[in-house]
Design a binder for these strands. Structure first.
Lengths: 215, 215
DNA sequence: AATGAACTTGACTGAATGGTCAGGCCTGCT
DNA sequence: AGCAGGCCTGACCATTCAGTCAAGTTCATT
């Protein structure tokens, strides 16, 4: 951000570059999400951001590298959501906040979620190292937090991993399977429906682990 | 089956044909699951079932048609699982059986689940009609069953759709995100782990909707 | 054994697509 | 104004891949 401002002040060169890269990444995210890596074409991405195909190759060396950048950007968003899982709070507050945040993300970053899902489904050829380092560490740390809550009698005894998987699965489902949900719903979910779904997910999970959550 | 036996008795021609088609479909299911439609190549499928590529085109007119047949076959398996959701039983028995069945499916048909997920994520270009007809009818019928249970005070008041999505998401996650789960687990889940995960999922959901399920 | 239909397959083709490149253009600095 | 470096792009190339085909082979039937 500071870099962009600096650039802006002394000409629009660097700022324009960042803007163009972002536009390409946005288009790429959507095309990769809708067609998968193999089905996506550089031409389709170029069309979506109204740039000649050769231009994409000026900013990103190859399709693979562009894809990698897309995935990395998504991972950062994911990490941001992960931070909302605060170990200091009670399980009720922490989990409710985390689930809500993940539901929001599913709504705001539908394409990103799909790209991530695709990548993992295909064996994570690009981001295996992330899974083995950052994701693993994050998961293990939260597993310990949950174990502590259990030991303190703040929630029912449940293997933390199955609980985390359930939260990931359910929240991401609203992005990855949005098409199915919208078909069954005759259109996109309304604000009220998102709120209701979020509340229901929170409610079932919190009660499910022995926390008499609201209402 | 009767057809195959009949064929077998009067020569192995028709029987062999079915067997070959099944081999191709199995290979295709796996390749489509691992690479997506766009990333899959007929050659890769041919290699996996040890047949010359030209032979695939003798049995299936095009890549698209082969893909369609793969998806249709998966849908039949899905329907079979759907039948285990019996409206006659109590919610506890019905949901427990349904969840267990879906977890079993995720374990036995990992590739099928992935192909389905891919198809829906990409906007269901091939099976949109299924979503709008069969899936919709099935869902609406189960929604009514769940509403009846709620009206009868057998479970907490919860929008049935969010509950169903949660069950689908969680159970399918064990197939679609198997790679991620196995990375975090340092290897495939053991029998005991599958049982534990299934039990935890049942437990959280049943308690979550106000049914004091076992243990 | 003869026959013809069903099956098999190596070699080929046309189209699509990732990637390249040379030359032109614009921008900001001196 | 003039210049240098970053930026843009149409045309092109090499590869990959779905799909074809014609020439074989196998097999059930008669």
């Amino acid at each position: 951000m500071a870099k962009a401002e600096h650039a802006e002040r002394q000409g629009n060169r660097a700022g324009a570059r960042e803007e163009t890269e972002r536009a390409i990444l946005d288009a790429a995210e959507r095309v990769f999400a809708e067609a998968g890596f193999g089905g996506a074409t550089m031409q389709a991405i170029a069309d979506l951001c109204a740039l000649p195909k050769a231009n994409l190759h000026y900013y990103f060396a190859s399709k693979k590298q562009l894809y990698r950048r897309v995935v990395e950007r998504i991972f950062l968003v994911w990490l941001e959501a992960a931070d909302s899982f605060e170990s200091s709070a009670t399980p009720e507050v922490a989990l409710r906040r985390y689930i809500t945040r993940k539901m929001d993300l599913s709504r705001a970053h539908r394409y990103g979620s799909k790209v991530w899902a695709n990548e993992v489904m295909h064996g994570a050829p690009i981001i295996q190292d992330f899974l083995e380092s950052t994701l693993r560490e994050w998961t293990e740390s939260r597993v310990r937090v949950i174990r502590r809550w259990i030991a303190a009698g703040e929630m029912r005894e449940v293997d933390p991993r199955w609980l985390l998987y359930m939260i990931w699965a359910t929240t991401q489902h609203y992005a990855d399977f949005a098409h199915q949900i919208e078909t069954l719903n005759d259109g996109p979910l309304s604000d009220a429906q998102w709120d209701a779904a979020t509340e229901t997910v929170c409610g079932i999970i919190l009660r499910g682990i022995g926390i008499g959550a609201g209402r």
